[in-house]
């Protein structure tokens, strides 16, 4: 799987190259600024790009802007944004084209190598990887809502993991239960929230995120 990395701090860039190479990725280019990232994305057409949100020359949200621009030029280009902090505003912008294949994770999560690599693969495959902190904030925003209040604590947990982008199998592995149990929970959640059931995993994540992003009623 071919990956482009953008990170301006050499220590972290080398670490990411090492980590992803060791996990079976082919790092086609590792850049340290926004303009070079845009040209690398155009030139290599990688399977996935792992991008630090803050990049030179502006040292603002350059990485995010380049990622959004690259996805405007090539819809659905898989990008995973890494950041020292998460902003709902940025998550919203990444998800707004509803094309999937986006990730937005705290840099802390790289420390959990297995889950991080799984997230990169998921994004490359067209899935979603939203940080648990983004989802946590979205859920807090909606917690006064009637339908969410009707979920059991377990269903709440499953909903959060589903919104992060995990498949039923991955959720089952995380919660140490069977796939079948998770399928039952997800059906209950969709029924309680009044969302149309869907077998397509990615479409399901999009529906859940859209529901959570909507203004509380």
């Amino acid at each position: 799987m071919r990956v482009v990395i953008a990170e301006d701090l050499a220590l972290l860039r080398d670490g990411l190259v090492r980590l992803l190479s060791a996990s079976g990725f082919e790092v086609v280019e590792a850049v340290d600024n926004g303009p070079m990232l845009l040209s690398a994305l155009t030139r290599h057409r990688p399977d996935v790009a792992v991008i630090d949100v803050r990049l030179p020359p502006t040292l603002t949200d350059e990485g995010l802007r380049v990622a959004l621009e690259a996805r405007r030029r090539r819809p659905g280009l898989p990008v995973l944004i890494l950041s020292q902090y998460v902003e709902q505003l940025y998550a919203r912008e990444l998800l707004s084209d509803q094309a999937g294949a986006v990730g937005y994770l705290l840099k802390d999560r790289i420390g959990d190598v297995e889950q991080f690599v799984e997230a990169v693969r998921r994004v490359a495959a067209g899935g979603t990887a939203m940080d648990s902190e983004v989802i946590g904030q979205l859920l807090t925003r909606r917690e006064r809502d009637e339908p969410l209040g009707r979920l059991t604590p377990r269903e709440h947990e499953v909903l959060a993991l589903m919104a992060e982008g995990l498949s039923n199998a991955a959720i089952a592995a995380r919660l140490l239960v069977t796939d079948k149990a998770i399928a039952k929970h997800t059906n209950n959640i969709f029924a309680k929230l009044g969302l149309p059931p869907s077998d397509d995993h990615n479409r399901r994540v999009v529906a859940v995120l859209a529901y959570l992003k909507a203004e509380p009623g």
Binding site: E87, Q88, L89, Q137, T140, R141, R142, E143, R144, P216
Partner: peptide, 8 residues
Amino acid sequence: EAAALHVP
């Protein structure tokens, strides 16, 4: 705008 998204 971001701060407005932080409150429930």
